[in-house]
Amino acid sequence: MPSIIKAEKLGYYYVKYSDDSENPELINAIRSIDLSVERGEFIAVLGHNGSGKSTLAKHINALLVPSEGTMWIDGVDTGQEEDLWKVRQKAGMVFQNPDNQIIGTVVDEDVGFGPENLGVPTDDIWKRVDDALSKVGMLGFRDRSPGKLSGGQKQRVAIAGVVAMQPECIVLDEPTAMLDPNGRKEVLQVVRDLNKQEGVTVILITHYMEEVVFADHVYVMDGGQIVMEGTPREVFSQVDVLKSYRLTVPQVTELAYELKTAGVPLPEGILTIDELVEALC
């Protein structure tokens, strides 16, 4: 069985026309990215604004097609026009702004939008919608207008909309950036449950360090390239390197790091409060 997501020497260029100069600029959003994700993994991609992480995410869903190199989703080349809808069904995508990705005027209609596009028979659409809404814990809100929901609830509806398409993997492009802390917690819990219980491969793109602690594997991007990768513990043990990419580590890790440099004997890469308590007492 092939890897669910595989990228080889992926590069993407676009031409930028600035207001003042006549000459268009060639911008290199991502370059020479190699990536291989196995089924059921929880992957986090970290990066500062403009690091190319969103561009990478859009390649997984074939919203962007590589300028060079190749991207395969479940063995299907995203550059092939005729396989476009197959790729988009396999790799669902959740975006940052909850208001701008909800199409339906009622929650269940929105969740049904994807299956409708796939040409699923009406009875099956209802089954899929019920199933997807219960997986994200929004079944009780099915008749509501999306406008009346909280940010976290809207984002859960958006996730249900993707789940109803029965994808192999879900790409979440900063899904919590516009949410309050409670909304962030809700959304992350749903994402983790989907990964653990349903075995859906998750690619979480974020700049909140706290969200990647549970990932199996972390990639750090800067300037369009992958600059660090490893388990969260491996990545977060290199506090100085992370800081050079304008990223901060979780508060606990930062505290442990400061204590360690001040001479307290602690192990590398502490990720949670419990671990720090354990190590200190």
């Binding site: 669902g92 199409i103 596009n117 993707v162």
Partner: peptide, 26 residues
């Protein structure tokens, strides 16, 4: 900007016009 985002979200969910589309609430 919203229109752009929405169009992208619709494409990401396989929207490709009315052909081959079924209806949830016919």
């Amino acid at each position: 900007r919203r229109a752009n985002d929405l169009a992208m979200a619709m494409e990401a969910r396989c929207y490709h016009g009315g052909s081959g589309r079924t209806q949830m609430k016919p």
